[in-house]
């Protein structure tokens, strides 16, 4: 990587009480805690956004918006309702999806998918995933899904598609896509050993 090397990767499994604590401090206006939180999470935030929006410059803009939103709305974080990592990644994913769902972006994506076909998106994901130790487990868990579950989950999450768009692209009924997204995620959750 040509950019930074002080980004600490975080474990895929298990919850980090330290992150929860940092975000709680951020809610009280602690800029040092925010900086530490930034260092811990920015690679995940940026990587996810870049996966969804693709364009590097736009991904940087969105990542900046996300981190500022984390700062601004940290008081809404409630550790009883989920981990800090999940909270921040949810903000990041929503912002990324908002960005690509603008009308212009939608037509671009349709073109892109028409060119690529459905399978490419996942292969591209898998390629990056294998470069990281924490990604190994995610990849193995993704491999444990049925083809349709995996496509439904990855097209929605990494591609930023809504479930009716996924249904259209995969040419399967809406109800099937909804179900595959849910049972695919349930299987991933169990495979990753996510705390509930």
């Amino acid at each position: 990587m040509g950019f930074v090397n002080d980004v600490v990767p975080i474990s895929v499994t298990g919850r980090s009480p330290e992150l929860d604590e940092l975000l709680t401090l951020v809610a009280r206006g602690d800029e040092t805690a925010f900086e530490r939180l930034y260092d811990r999470l920015i690679a995940s935030v940026f990587g996810l956004i870049r996966r969804v929006v693709r364009d590097r410059a736009q991904a940087e803009e969105v990542a900046q918006e996300v981190m500022v939103e984390v700062w601004r709305t940290a008081a809404r974080f409630d550790p009883a309702r989920g981990s800090a990592m999940s909270w921040v990644m949810t903000v990041a994913h929503r912002r990324a999806v908002d960005r690509v769902r603008s009308a212009q972006a939608a037509s671009d994506r349709e073109d892109r998918v028409a060119r690529m076909g459905g399978e490419v998106a996942y292969d591209h994901v898998a390629e990056t995933v294998t470069t990281r130790l924490e990604g190994e487990r995610v990849r193995r868990c993704l491999d444990g899904l049925t083809e349709l579950q995996r496509q439904a989950v990855t097209m929605a999450y990494y591609g930023g598609y809504s479930y009716p768009e996924v249904a259209g692209l995969l040419k399967v009924p809406l109800g099937t896509v909804k179900t595959r997204m849910r049972d695919g995620l349930v299987r991933l959750r169990d495979c990753m050993g996510v705390e509930r």
């Binding site: 995940s44 940026f46 996810l48 870049r50 990056t128 924490e134 990604g135």
Partner: peptide, 8 residues
């Protein structure tokens, strides 16, 4: 975790 897996 799917997001963390594509960190960059």
């Amino acid at each position: 975790r799917l997001g963390v897996a594509v960190a960059e």
